[in-house]
């Protein structure tokens, strides 16, 4: 069991513009949740605008705030969708 995990983060739409990047990575303690990641990102430089209740997808499925993350997960920050 590793102490830390690393996840890949993706920023879409207006979030990509606000973050000035389309993807990044984050290191977290093992057993961190989606909410832990969002809190860590909001505390990181340049991402304080990220809503606390941001919609998140883990490995391409919508995920809840309490979802536990694993090493290597792909986590997308999803702004309000506007298809159609």
């Amino acid at each position: 069991m590793m102490d830390r995990i690393s996840v890949r983060t993706l920023f879409f739409g207006v979030y990509g513009e606000l973050a000035a990047r389309r993807e990044g990575s984050a290191e977290l303690p093992a057993d961190s949740t989606v909410a832990d990641l969002v809190e860590a990102l909001r505390g990181a430089g340049g991402l304080d605008w990220l809503p606390e209740s941001v919609v998140v997808a883990v490995n391409q499925s919508y995920a809840e705030a309490g979802t536990t993350l694993s090493d290597g997960d792909e986590v997308a920050l999803i702004p309000p969708v506007a298809g159609g």
Binding site: V81, A82, G83
Partner: peptide
């Protein structure tokens, strides 16, 4: 589609 599809305009 309008509430779920991960597409941005």
């Amino acid at each position: 589609i309008k509430v779920r599809l991960p597409v941005w305009k």
